[in-house]
C-alpha cells in the first residue's frame, strides 16, 4: 500500500521534471526546422540555436557586453524596488492609521497604476534628464502600486476579535501596529514584493528604451541589437532579462517562505 503510494509519487515527480523538458525539446525542434527552411540571406531573422550560443554566449566580447548591461539593469531595478518598498509601505502604513489619508490619497495610487507608463516616461525625461535617475523613477512608478495595496490590505485585514484582545489589554496604536497589524500583513507584503520585483525589472528595461544617457543596460542593448539586426545577441539579452525577472520573483518568494513559512501557507 505504502510502496504503491511512494511509487506513484515518484512517477508524478519525474513526470513533473520530464514534461517541461519534452516541451523544450519540441520548441527547439520547431526552431531548427523554421530556421533551416529560411533562405540563407534571411536566416538572420531566426538564427539556429547553436548560432545563438556560438555568437551570443561563447563570444566573450558579446557576452561581456550583455553581462555589463545586465549589471546596470540590476542596479536600476533594485534601486527602484527599494525606493518603491520604502515609499509604498510607509504610505500604506499612514493610510492604515487614518481613514482620511486613505480616502485622500488612495485614488492617486490607483491612477499611477492605470496611466500607461509610456505616457509618463517622456515627462519624467523632460524633468529629470535621461540618465540613471529617470530610469529609477520609472521603476518606482511601475512597481509601487502592488506594494501599497498588498501592505494596506494586510494591515486592514486583522480579524475584529484580535483587535478586541488588544483593546481589552489597553494596547495603544504603535503596539497594535507593531504586534498585530504588521505581522498579520507580512504574507500579503511578501506577495506585493514578489509582484513588484518583477515589475521593477520590466520598468528598468522599458525606461532604457527612452533614456539613452549613461552606460547601456539590457533595455538599450535590446534596442541596439534590434536596430543592427544582431539577432543572436538579441536572444542573449532576452535570455538574461527573463532570467533576472525569474530570479527576483523566486528570490522574494524564497525570502517570504523563510519569514512567514513557519506559520503561513505561501502560494
Amino acid at each position: 500500500m505504502s510502496a504503491r503510494h511512494t511509487s506513484s509519487r515518484l512517477r508524478s515527480s519525474t513526470y513533473r521534471l520530464w514534461a517541461p523538458i519534452v516541451v523544450f525539446l519540441a520548441v527547439l525542434g520547431v526552431w531548427y526546422a523554421i530556421s533551416l527552411s529560411l533562405d540563407p540571406d534571411r536566416q538572420f531573422l531566426l538564427p539556429t540555436p547553436n548560432e545563438v550560443i556560438r555568437v551570443g554566449f561563447l563570444n566573450q566580447d558579446n557576452l561581456f557586453q550583455v553581462l555589463e548591461g545586465l549589471l546596470w539593469t540590476v542596479a536600476v531595478s533594485m534601486t527602484g524596488l527599494v525606493i518603491a518598498i520604502v515609499l509604498g509601505m510607509s504610505s500604506a502604513i499612514m493610510m492604515s492609521q487614518a481613514k482620511w489619508i486613505e480616502t485622500s490619497f488612495y485614488p492617486y495610487a490607483v491612477i499611477i497604476q492605470t496611466v500607461p507608463i509610456l505616457a509618463i516616461v517622456p515627462l519624467v525625461g523632460l524633468w529629470l534628464g535621461f540618465g540613471f535617475t529617470s530610469r529609477v523613477v520609472v521603476c518606482v512608478i511601475i512597481s509601487i502600486f502592488p506594494i501599497i495595496t498588498n501592505t494596506l490590505f494586510g494591515l486592514q485585514s486583522v480579524p475584529a476579535s484580535f483587535h478586541d484582545l488588544f483593546t481589552l489589554h489597553s494596547a495603544g496604536r504603535p503596539t497594535r501596529l507593531l504586534k498585530l497589524q504588521f505581522p498579520n500583513a507580512l504574507p500579503a507584503i511578501f506577495t506585493g514584493f514578489r509582484i513588484s520585483a518583477g515589475l521593477s525589472v520590466i520598468g528598468a528595461i522599458v525606461g532604457e528604451f527612452f533614456f539613452r544617457k549613461g552606460i547601456p543596460g539590457l533595455g538599450r542593448l535590446l534596442d541596439l541589437y534590434r536596430a543592427r539586426l544582431l539577432t543572436e545577441q538579441l536572444f542573449t539579452a532576452l535570455v538574461f532579462s527573463s532570467l533576472l525577472g525569474i530570479l527576483v520573483f523566486w528570490g522574494f518568494g524564497f525570502i517570504g517562505r523563510l519569514v512567514v513559512g513557519k506559520w503561513h501557507e505561501t502560494t
Partner: peptide
C-alpha cells in the same frame, strides 16, 4: 479580566509560548 472567546483568537505567527505571553507583554 480573563476573556475567552468562542474562537481561540491565537496569533498565527506566534508559537504557543509567545501567544500565552501576549497579555503579559501588553
Amino acid at each position: 479580566l480573563g476573556y475567552v472567546f468562542q474562537d481561540a483568537t491565537l496569533l498565527p505567527w506566534r508559537t504557543v509560548q509567545k501567544n500565552v505571553e501576549l497579555f503579559c507583554e501588553l
